[in-house]
Amino acid sequence: MYTVEFVECPLGDLLTRVQSLKHEGLRFVQLFAEKPEAGMDLVYTFYDVVNDNALNLVVNGITEESEVPSIQGLYFAAFSYENEAHDLYGVNFVNMQLDFGGHFFNVGIDAPMAIISPEQKAAREKAAKVKAAAAAKAAKAAKEAAAKAAAGDGAAEKPAAKPAALTEEERAKKMEAKLAAMDPEKAAKVRAALAAQAAKKAAQKDGE
């Protein structure tokens, strides 16, 4: 089985790194662009046949203005990927040997892959919320642990013994944290359901 390695590489060093890899006899596998939150990333993959290792050079923070040196002079096979990244992501390559000038893929819109769709935006927001909720939970746990440590050994056993006996308030707090992680529409629905439940409970109590 081969191994996989991801290595970050600044834009300025790209050409020298690729040159040294070429001297070491690595095979060029591919190049692609992706667009996480800020800027664009370029990932170059090389394969070392001797050690069976796939090496990925990750170039972070590319903008539409940055001039990325073309590696076609070293690995001509990169021409299709460079033109593709240019047409679909708007990455600006310089010194290309075979430059299609934006007509490799004739698509209806410019740089279609670089556009962040509403679905992707929603997914990202959701991911950020999940992250925030997890961080809040971790912070709370840390706080509790610290409190426990301060209270001494005897007190530490107590909360572990009865985890089920949460007060109404704690439960509500937990629910809020969960709701924060959901997308707004779903959260609204859940809130409505909860309100209905509470009203029912209240009605039952009244009946008794």
């Binding site: 591919q30 992706e34 001509f76 299709s80 997914a123 959701k126 999940v130």
Partner: peptide, 20 residues
């Protein structure tokens, strides 16, 4: 990206490598 959707999928097929 932490959700049920994948953030980026990329495939490189043998033919695009053989174009050169």
């Amino acid at each position: 990206n932490g959700t049920k959707n994948i953030e980026r999928f990329r495939m490189r097929t043998p033919t695009s490598q053989n174009l050169a």
